[in-house]
Design a protein around this nucleic acid. Structure first.
Lengths: 192, 192
DNA sequence: CCTACCGATCGGTAGG
DNA sequence: CCTACCGATCGGTAGG
């Protein structure tokens, strides 16, 4: 008589998702170069080489994760912004949402958005292309602000985004929430 | 009759300086992990292993370069600030000087200040210690500002520094000088 | 998903 | 400063 497997059989699709999540966390915590395929395998309970049944290459895996993270972030921000009408309130919603994503320790998200320098050239080109598209969201938000004429909106947007993207480098949970930080940012960046 | 060397003999001290400068440029451009000892050797005209006559280890080399860069930056900023009396003018001087350093493509400097994540743990601890000391300079400048009570000065300083440190990620020379950016930053961050 | 391996590259060293 | 090497680790693959 045939013995049943102790572990329930998991559909290949879900197994792949599981591996992607593990990889996202490792990339976010240790960077692209700091994460080896063997590291990912270890957390998934398999050897590094076995991962290639689910993915094509480390590069492709990273690009896929990065793009999916930006897709999700874009959706969340668009939803949050849509609930507001006043330009400053829309900007504050966007900042709070992006900070929420960047500062959530459980997020399998874009803390990897930064150090593009440690990634191979062809990968970097793809990441930058996707990120530029993401940033048009903020270009539109900034365009709607009633800013003094002497403020350059392109600089303004770049400064704002670099703050939001590097907040995870200095933020420590406790005293302030991501929402508090977003309010501080808008307070500073607000000019009428 | 003895032949004279074609290349003039260079004192060991200067040779070491030369190697440090080459290493600084490579680290700044390609990051810690992206720069191998063999890369440094190649630009210096020797094999990677030969560098160990001048340095103890790659880690020690990186820490030395990082600390020397911060020493130099600290001096330049302190000098620039000392020429100003008014708190906002002092902050603007500091921002302009730091941006000058960060955005100068010839600077063998602190573009490496950022991605601490790709560096080994013991190295990171040393870098952070030195950087924290560097940042007290800005803590004092921000403390002197007449800011509205609802603005948190710790957040304010972190936002300001993260902008200055990541400006090299988006800045492209041409339309605006580092001084222009500094003026934009202070315009945005100025509140009376 | 594993075994067993490939070629490449890494930081670093001994000995001259 | 070179030769010649060490052990470790990397991304990836063939074959089952």
């Amino acid at each position: 008589m045939p013995t049943e497997p102790v572990q329930p059989v998991m559909p290949q699709r879900d197994r792949r998702r599981e591996i992607l999540e593990i990889a996202a966390h490792l990339f976010a915590r240790k960077g692209y170069r700091g994460t080896s395929m063997r590291d990912i395998g270890e957390e998934a309970g398999v050897l590094g080489g076995s991962l290639y049944h689910h993915i094509r290459s480390k590069d492709a895996l990273f690009v896929e994760l990065h793009d999916a993270a930006l897709d999700a972030a874009e959706r969340r921000i668009a939803d949050a912004v849509a609930a507001q009408a006043e330009p400053w309130a829309r900007l504050e919603s966007a900042c709070e949402t992006l900070l929420d994503i960047q500062l959530d320790p459980r997020s399998l998200t874009l803390p990897m958005m930064n150090d593009f320098r440690e990634v191979p050239d062809p990968v970097r080109r793809k990441l930058i292309e996707r990120r530029d598209r993401f940033e048009t969201l903020f270009r539109d938000l900034v365009a709607a602000l009633p800013l003094p004429a002497e403020i350059d909106r392109s600089i303004y947007r770049n400064l704002l985004l670099s703050q939001l993207n590097s907040a995870a480098d200095w933020y420590r949970p406790g005293r302030m929430t991501p929402g508090d930080i977003a309010r501080q940012i808008v307070m500073i960046f607000r000019h009428s």
